[in-house]
Computed example of a mutant assay.
Amino acid sequence: MEHTKTAQQLVAQLEQHQMVIEQDNGVFRSIRFAAPNTNVQSYRLTTWPGYIAISGDMGTYVFARMHDMFEFFRQPGDGPIDLSLGYWAEKCVSADPHSGIQRYSPDKFEDVVMDIARNPPEELDDPEGLIREVREEVLPFSDDGERMARYAAERFEYEGKGVFLDFWEVNLREYTSTFVEACTAIVQGIRQYDGIHQWTAVATGEFDTLYVCKHCKARHVEAADQPGSEPPQKGCSSGAKLEQWNADAFHDHVVAIGYGEPTEAGRALGEKLVLAGDDCATAAHEVVARGLTTEPEETDQ
C-alpha cells in the first residue's frame, strides 16, 4: 500500500514533465523527461534491442526481458499504475549503486517480530509477558542494521525456549523508494510517449488495416467493417480524440500532392486512417505512397 501511494504521488508530479525525443528509431530510443525550468526529477529513458535504461534523478537502472522493452513496461494510460515490483526486480540487470533494489527495513523487522510475539509457536503461561520482553530486549536493535537485528531475535528466549525459530529465513527487506520511483517513471514516461504515438497498425489484408488504440486497446475502425454496424465513435474510453471524416477535404489533400485523385480503395483507406486518428494530410500521403491514386493525366480528361 505504501508503494502504491508513493507511485500515485509521483505520477501527479510527473504529469507536468515535458518530453524531448532525442532519438526514436524502432527500438532505439532516447527520450528525456523534465519539468519546465528545472532538472529536479528529470530523467531519460534509453532503449535498444532487449534493454531499457532509466537514468537521472530517478536513479539508474537497466532492465532486460524482450526485444522492445517499452512493451514490457507498457500499461493503459488511465488508472493507477500496477506495480509489479517483484517481476520487474527479476529483470533488472543493473541496479543503482547508491539505492539498489531492496534494503533492510527496520519497520518490517518490528512488524514481523511483534506478529510472532503475538502469535507464538507454543502456548505460554504469560503471553503478555512475552510481548513486554520482546519490546524491551529485541525491538531496540531494529535500527542497528539487519545483522544485529537478526542476532537479537535469534538469541532471544522466553520461559527457557527460543521464540523466533528459523528467523534467518524471514525476509526483512523492502523495495527502495528509488527503485519504486524509477519503475513508476518508466511506466509514466511510456504513457506520455504513447500519447503522441496513439495508434498502432495491425495488417489484415493488402489494403485492409485496422488501427488499434494503445490507450484502451479498442479497435475503433473494426466496427465499420461489419454489415449494418454503426461507424466508429469519436474518442475512446481513455479520452483520446478521433478526427471527423471529411471526404472532400481528404480528396483535396490527395490531389494537392500531385499524383492524381484517390481511387475507391484509396478513399476507403483514407477514411479508416482518419477515423483511427490520423489527420487528412497524413492519411493522404499514406494513400499516395501505396499508389492508390489515378494517373495525373486522367484527372484532366
Rank of each mutant, 00 (worst) to 15 (best):
V180G: 06
C236L: 08
Y51D: 04
C92G: 08
H197E: 00
V254F: 09
L275S: 15
D278V: 02
T282D: 14
T263A: 12
D24R: 05
P227F: 08
G59E: 04
S94C: 14
V113M: 02
D278E: 15
L85S: 13
A117D: 00
F109N: 06
A7L: 05
V134W: 00
S30N: 12
Y61G: 00
A218W: 13
Q188L: 02
T38E: 03
D111K: 14
S177P: 05
V112D: 02
A249M: 08
D125N: 12
H17C: 11
N37V: 08
P76E: 02
P227N: 10
L10D: 04
R150Y: 07
Y87R: 11
A53P: 11
R267F: 14
H17R: 04
W245R: 08
T60R: 13
P140M: 05
Q18M: 10
T60Q: 10
N246W: 03
L130Q: 00
T200L: 08
V254W: 12
L124N: 00
R29Q: 00
T47P: 09
Q16G: 10
V40I: 10
A153I: 05
S177D: 15
E243F: 09
E2H: 12
S42M: 03
A224H: 07
T178C: 13
P262F: 04
A283W: 01
V20A: 11
P140E: 07
R191G: 00
S94Q: 14
P121F: 04
T4R: 09
I131R: 02
F72V: 01
V113W: 01
D248Q: 09
N171C: 05
D82H: 11
P120K: 06
N37A: 07
E22M: 03
T293A: 05
L165N: 07
Q244T: 06
P227G: 10
I52Q: 09
D57M: 09
E169W: 09
Y61M: 00
C92L: 03
G266R: 01
T47K: 07
V287N: 12
D144Y: 14
Q75S: 04
A95Y: 12
G86S: 12
T299N: 15
R132W: 01
P80R: 13
L124W: 01
A223Q: 15
P296A: 06
G100D: 02
E157L: 10
S55K: 11
R267E: 15
Q8N: 12
H253S: 14
E295G: 06
S30G: 10
T178I: 11
G277N: 02
V113H: 02
G195Q: 02
C280R: 09
P106F: 08
S94V: 08
V202N: 13
Y211L: 15
C183L: 03
K91P: 02
F250H: 03
V274T: 09
A283N: 05
E137T: 04
Q102S: 15
V202H: 13
H17F: 03
G266C: 05
H67G: 07
A281R: 09
D125G: 08
E154F: 05
E110Q: 12
P121Y: 02
Q244G: 10
H98V: 14
F250W: 03
W199C: 13
S94N: 13
E230A: 14
